[in-house]
Design a protein around this nucleic acid. Structure first.
Length: 293
DNA sequence: GCGACAG
DNA sequence: ATCTTGTCGC
């Protein structure tokens, strides 16, 4: 029947999607637009949002989209909303936004209507920003459509623009010693490649060690309305563990929602005997890396 | 044919 | 993304 399970979306669809990405890309702002973004302590920043989509195990359609808002710098959840959704678009590398963004957008709009005072001042998005085949990943996409500052936070390196997770890259990762350490991801487009409209695209992404006890880096890239420097610094300030709290809480939230909606076994009440501590941020520089908070 | 492939 | 308990370590 009308199942395209075999080879993914038809070429025609991908072509439309590419055009849409190119159109929206023109609206991306890859620099700081807010005063707090340039402040060494992020003074003025009070709410950081996170979004995520989790999936139902054996189901390729049902999923749960979540939006959470955390106070800053305490990182306490002040808002959370989850919604079961029916996915329409399949996952295709380079087109993640067409699968997830429509639902995330709905969550943001719902918040805008019902609790405008809790609107986050920035969104951490699970996935890439400008570190993308065409320089327009899901974090850019959501950023432009919501006009909110966004940061792309990916757990794996998307090997585009000549970037490779090879021995040299792994060696650079090994040199990241403490949280806040990072190195720039330099693609080929710095020379001639890159986008048609003559976008120079200098390193707009970095590999970041987000936690002292985590070897695997995060790949941070500009989403919208924020500089890479601020994006990396902010991400680090949001990390109690390897994954920044806003994204981590959104993930927990969506998975929990799925469990409930499936009427599953009792949720193991996670005891929290410890009082939560405010987040401490990285200290002075080391080599090419820098981080202040 | 082979390798790559954010979530 | 998801499949998964116990386990090793601080």
């Amino acid at each position: 029947m009308a199942l395209e399970a075999a080879g993914g979306p038809p070429e025609e669809t991908l072509s439309l999607w590419k055009r849409e990405q190119a159109r929206l890309k023109a609206h991306v702002v890859d620099r700081d637009t807010e005063a707090w973004q340039r402040d060494p302590a992020f003074s003025g920043l009070q709410r950081v949002g996170g979004v995520d989509v989790s999936f139902v195990k054996g189901d390729s359609v049902r999923a749960c989209a979540s939006l959470v808002v955390l106070s800053f710098p305490e990182l306490e959840v002040v808002y959370e909303e989850s919604r079961m959704v029916s996915l329409t678009a399949p996952y295709v590398s380079g087109f993640l936004a067409f699968r997830e963004v429509p639902f995330l957008l709905e969550l943001v709009q719902q918040l805008r209507e019902k609790e405008p005072g809790l609107m986050p001042q920035v969104l951490l998005v699970d996935g890439n920003g400008v570190l993308h085949h065409r320089g327009f990943g899901v974090a850019c996409h959501l950023g432009v459509l919501t006009d909110l500052p966004c940061v792309g936070v990916a757990k794996k390196l998307l090997q585009v623009d000549g970037l490779e997770n090879n021995a040299l890259h792994k060696e650079k990762i090994r040199l990241l010693q403490t949280r806040g350490d990072s190195f720039p991801l330099l693609g080929d487009s710095g020379t001639v490649l890159g986008m048609p409209t003559g976008q120079p695209s200098p390193s707009l992404s970095q590999a970041l060690r987000s936690h002292d006890r985590s070897t695997r880096p995060l790949y941070i890239s500009v989403g919208h309305r924020m500089s890479l420097e601020a994006a990396v610094r902010l991400t680090c300030c949001c990390c109690r563990f390897r994954i920044p709290e806003p994204v981590r809480q959104a993930d927990i939230c969506s998975r929990e929602h799925i469990r409930k909606s499936l009427g599953l076994p009792g949720p193991p009440t996670p005891r929290s005997p410890k009082a939560q501590r405010p987040v401490a941020c990285p200290k002075g520089d080391s080599g090419e890396s820098s981080a202040l908070c």
